[in-house]
Design a protein around this nucleic acid. Structure first.
Lengths: 204, 204
DNA sequence: AATGTAAAGTTTACAGTGTAAAGTTGAAGG
DNA sequence: CCTTCAACTTTACACTGTAAACTTTACATT
């Protein structure tokens, strides 16, 4: 609708960005349920109805935050991928490490991003973010796609594996005691399977 | 605390069970956000404060519903596993089909079960349900565990894979057009990887 | 049988939430 | 200087969870 990205608002400096950042702060500090239009407004120092103007209600705010969250998610995956070994195996393993680390470090934002509830109305923002993150995964998976086969097979395997592990880890399914310090220990089976996925195209 | 399973309540026949069923109905009809103490009470024909008595507030109601949901989840997996080929491979594939089918048929209940937000207070109910479902997975994975190795490796791989696929499928990550009719088509890569996991212990 | 007691629900009240409408401010353009 | 319009505020309302006080009912004890 109205493009207010490069247009200076009248009163506040850049309220839209400030509201998104306030929302992310609230998510980080107090969890998903604490993300509220009114609290977000209070933190940004505006009236409680201001966020409903910039975004289309609460779900609009959540969509905008999710978009920003996807950007950071993607950035962290890229950073992690660039940090380790640059072999095809090393790149995909580091990417998945970044995936898990982001989920562990930003659980509420991660949950918001992949929430499948009332975000359906925001498929525009949502699909853009998903496609962005998915693109990173695709190019990292490319070396493992057998020639002539559908790349989505490998992509789906890797994507499902790392996402399922991250989600179950956050939900505490792998034990209530497992905390951020030792999540890489539990991560070992996933890494092993990822390496197994990587072997077929390079048999000898 | 108070065991009210076999004790006839005073006014209502069995309000606790009625409230849980009302909650599941609301979830099925109107989604996760629609699950409300007051709506649940109205549907069961009692005052709005009644649910807060039987359960410990909203999170208590959600915990009780999650427990019931886990039972149905487990039952569906068992039913599905029993329906197909009884080879070790067939059993694990059918189990995962049941997993995915339950998620597709009960998206809100599935999301509630694996929500990692404010359920932490209900680790008792939650861990019981998780352990119950996890047990089914364990025994189905057992034939694929190499002798002397940690069974949790295979379990984690299968669990993460099927859960991640189900969750991403519900979230629409694999395309917004993919609906219940063709979710088994998209499921193919996961099945392939599951069979791959199954091969190592039977090399010849 | 009368009475006490505790559980099961209801009523009342309150703080917080999203949303819609009307009102206010302030910067830009003629 | 005045108009205009977007940005924001104020006001109002329906709905939510929670806590407290109150009422009813079944059971147990005397």
């Amino acid at each position: 609708m109205t493009d207010q990205t490069d247009k200076k608002p009248h009163h506040h400096g850049d309220l839209r960005a400030a509201l998104i950042q306030s929302g992310i702060d609230i998510l980080t500090e107090s969890g998903l349920e604490a993300l509220t239009l009114r609290r977000c407004a209070a933190r940004a120092g505006v009236s409680h109805a201001a966020p409903a103007h910039h975004f289309d209600g609460l779900s609009g705010l959540r969509g905008a935050i999710a978009k920003e969250g996807f950007d950071r998610f993607r950035a962290q995956m890229l950073r992690s991928r660039a940090s380790g070994s640059q072999s095809p195996e090393g790149r995909i393993l580091s990417l998945c490490r970044g995936y898990l680390d982001f989920a562990v470090e930003n659980p509420a934002l991660f949950a918001l991003i992949f929430s499948c509830g009332p975000m359906s109305q925001f498929e525009e923002d949502m699909n853009a973010g998903t496609a962005s993150a998915y693109g990173v995964l695709r190019e990292t998976c490319a070396p493992f796609v057998p020639k002539g086969s559908d790349p989505r097979v490998v992509e789906t395997q890797v994507w499902s594996l790392i996402h399922g592990f991250s989600h179950l880890f956050l939900a505490g399914t792998f034990g209530p005691d497992a905390g951020p310090p030792d999540h890489h220990r539990l991560f070992a089976p996933v890494m092993a399977l990822l390496q197994e996925i990587g072997t077929p195209p390079a048999p000898k």
